[in-house]
């Protein structure tokens, strides 16, 4: 709709008329969503809104049967390998190997993306330095705290220079300073690297004013726009108010 900005580049993520059901229970209902390069899109929704389902579909854990998903113009069904090459993911649960070192974990990921040893070394250094973790590269992941593990995971997701970074509630279970750190890092990433981000959360304080805000509730998109637009449309002052108005009567 109003978001189809004419750009030279293809949208980082394009979702059209996506529906998905677990048996009879509808998890996603005709979802449309477009994210442009260098756009940080925060997907806000209570637990069970369909966020995880959406992520499972984008990462091809489930196959989408109704609707279409494209990454940088590549349809994830028809050109799945090209599409996946553009994608970096941080899943909700930690997916690092606790018995291996930070470096071994990252080299494993680099290998999966076909990087040479030299390329990998260079990219790993760059990304770990960005997150101030390079000095800890030889430690076993088990020894890191939750916030540091998350930083390593984000660094890992960036190694192959994806165009779209998916973050599925990356700050769950972290203390305040670590949370803030990650929110800042990711927003800086959008600015510096022109990467597109889809960030799922149920915490309103992780949203910046110029983020794109999408509110998902019971499998439907209830709002989609820059924060100020959403506030204006709902006639509310804060995101929290807008959120509860749109998901009214429902426990979050």
């Amino acid at each position: 709709m109003g978001h189809r900005v004419k750009t030279m580049k293809k949208p980082a993520l394009e979702i059209e008329q996506l529906s998905f059901a677990y048996g009879k229970k509808k998890a996603l209902d005709h979802v449309n969503l477009t994210i442009q390069p260098a756009e940080c899109c925060v997907l806000l929704g209570p637990n069970g809104a369909g966020k995880s389902t959406l992520f499972a579909l984008i990462t091809r854990l489930y196959d989408c049967r109704e609707g279409r998903i494209a990454l940088c113009g590549f349809d994830i069904k028809q050109e799945s390998l090209k599409a996946l090459a553009k994608l970096g993911v941080v899943f909700q649960q930690t997916t690092l190997d606790p018995d291996l070192t930070v470096l071994q974990n990252l080299h494993y990921h680099a290998a999966l993306h076909g990087m040479s040893r030299k390329q990998a070394d260079q990219r790993i250094q760059q990304e770990l330095e960005r997150f101030e973790m390079y000095h800890r590269r030889k430690e076993k992941v088990r020894q890191l705290n939750g916030g540091h593990k998350r930083r390593v995971e984000i660094a890992r997701a960036l190694l192959h220079k994806p165009q779209l970074l998916l973050l599925d509630e990356p700050t769950v279970g972290l203390d305040m300073p670590s949370r803030q750190g990650i929110v800042e890092h990711v927003h800086a990433l959008v600015k510096d690297e022109k990467i597109a981000v889809l960030w799922a959360t149920h915490l309103v304080d992780e949203i910046y004013p110029d983020d794109k805000l999408v509110i998902l509730h019971q499998g439907k998109i209830k709002a989609d726009g820059v924060v100020s637009e959403v506030l204006q449309k709902t006639g509310t002052e804060t995101i929290r108010e807008a959120f509860s108005r749109l998901t009214e009567g429902m426990a979050t």
Binding site: T59, R60, L81, L84, Q92, T94, T95, L96, L112
Partner: peptide, 14 residues
């Protein structure tokens, strides 16, 4: 369960 299978499955390979 730990999710690292998912990491493998999003690698851009068949």
């Amino acid at each position: 369960e730990m999710g690292s299978m998912r990491i493998l499955m999003v690698a851009p390979l068949p």
